[in-house]
Simulated scan of single mutants.
Amino acid sequence: MAATARIADAPRGVDQVVREELRPRVAEIDAGAYPEAALRALGGSGAFGHHLGEAGEGLLAAVDAMGLVGEACLSTAFCVWCQDALAWYLARSEEAGPRRHLAAVASGEALGGTGLSNPMKALAGIEPLALEGRREGNGYRVRGRLPWVSNLGPGHRFAGIFALPDGRRLMGLFEAGGKAVSISANARFVALEGTGTYTVMVRDAFVPDEDIVSGDTAAFVPRIRNGFVLLQTGMGLGLARGVAAMMRQDARGREQARFLPLGPEAIEERAEALRERVAAAAQVHAETGRGAFLEILRLRLDVSLLALEAAQAGMLQLGARGYLEGAEAFRRLREAQFVAIVTPSVKHITTELARGV
């Protein structure tokens, strides 16, 4: 499918938001500016609402919208994924309380993220669950520390999973920025600095029953994990296409690099083949078996590898021009590394695949 066809089929307004709100600010965002205006405009375009039903077409539309954003800026595409993931959980909650936030999240009126990096690793046996809670009145007291939660700011909500003394694990909504749920930026990243990523300290925060997304995460997580991972493919596919476009625009360098092993045509062909696999996987996203999840992980791995190879190809074509501070090729190289290390990382995925069914 040609890039122009993808834009024509994309949610109305996403391409315009990318062109007018995002591309002029990419350098600022890469340096650490949070793209709040672009995110709210994307919400207004409907970018965060396509995947709220059960239909696979909606999930694919969300991936395509994220891909358009990722062609320009992976930081913003990652924030889109965080927003999409939060909406994904809320839409699948069987509880009326947390679903009251869904319309605001889907429209971009309310921004927020997902604190499920640690729980996904905990479920895989990579690290212990970071949050613990106890029953108190009409809710729970929760404490713990989450090293990295993204798309946050004061008043933003995020979903987190905490363990009770009896071993049960619940998912609840937390509001960032107060004394009980404080956020702090304790490190500076080589990329994705503008994503509102913070360390979160949860100090006996009260989570009322009406903000419990799931009281049984053992059953809930298998229902959301395929979409959680599948949505991430929009980041890598968008980055790869953005690199291919950058390479095409560099006419002089393209001629000199014509004998390199990976050019823009091959990148675009591989991206389109992966998108077709995303479309097929989206149709069966509701399957909860481990075999289905492993297939999603294989797809996510292949997207990560394409992003890495495409960014490397772009750097090789640009050569010394891409090695300058502020160069687009270097930004895309740094961004591609993030695609490979964000949960589930390549290391995490290959471990799961080695375990098998």
Rank of each mutant, 00 (worst) to 15 (best):
W88Y: 03
V26N: 15
G177F: 01
G291Q: 13
R6C: 04
A281Q: 10
G46I: 12
E36S: 00
K347A: 13
M246I: 04
V202Y: 05
V342H: 10
I29R: 08
A279K: 13
T76R: 10
A185D: 13
P154H: 14
P344H: 07
T114Q: 02
P261G: 08
P128S: 06
M247S: 10
I29M: 11
G319R: 07
G67E: 00
G356H: 15
Y89M: 15
L146V: 01
T217V: 15
F174A: 04
G322W: 09
Q337Y: 02
R334S: 05
G112A: 09
Q312D: 10
G115P: 07
A292V: 01
R321D: 11
S184F: 07
P344K: 05
E287W: 12
A3V: 00
E272M: 02
L129C: 02
R12L: 11
R203Q: 12
L231Y: 05
A354R: 12
V80C: 15
E94S: 12
I349M: 12
L239N: 02
A176I: 03
L297E: 06
A191M: 03
E28Y: 05
D9N: 10
G314F: 07
V149H: 01
L146W: 08
A37K: 15
L231G: 08
E328K: 13
R134H: 06
K179D: 15
Y198G: 04
F158C: 01
R100H: 09
T233L: 05
E269V: 13
R40M: 11
A320P: 04
G56D: 01
M120F: 10
G177Q: 05
L308K: 04
A336Y: 01
R241D: 13
M315L: 14
A37M: 09
Q283L: 02
A38Y: 13
S304H: 09
L316I: 08
I349D: 04
L86H: 12
I7L: 12
G46C: 00
G46K: 11
A122S: 15
L192K: 09
A122N: 08
A27L: 00
S117I: 02
R100P: 00
A280E: 14
V142L: 03
G13R: 01
G196R: 06
R270E: 14
A96R: 11
A280Q: 13
C73Q: 15
L42E: 15
R277S: 10
A61S: 13
A27W: 03
E335R: 06
L152S: 08
W81D: 08
G253N: 08
L316Q: 09
G155P: 03
L239G: 06
N138W: 10
G319H: 04
I7E: 06
A176K: 03
R40P: 15
E20M: 07
A327S: 15
A219N: 13
L152V: 11
F259N: 14
E20W: 14
R223S: 07
A273K: 13
Q16H: 02
A187L: 09
A103K: 05
E95A: 14
D30C: 02
K347R: 11
G263E: 10
R23L: 09
L59M: 10
A292H: 11
L131Y: 01
A310R: 11
M235Q: 14
E54R: 10
V284C: 07
D211F: 04
D216A: 14
E268M: 08
P264M: 00
G56S: 02
S107R: 03
Q16G: 06
V342F: 02
G234V: 00
A251T: 08
A2H: 03
A219P: 07
T199M: 01
L90R: 05
A251P: 01
F338L: 10
M66G: 07
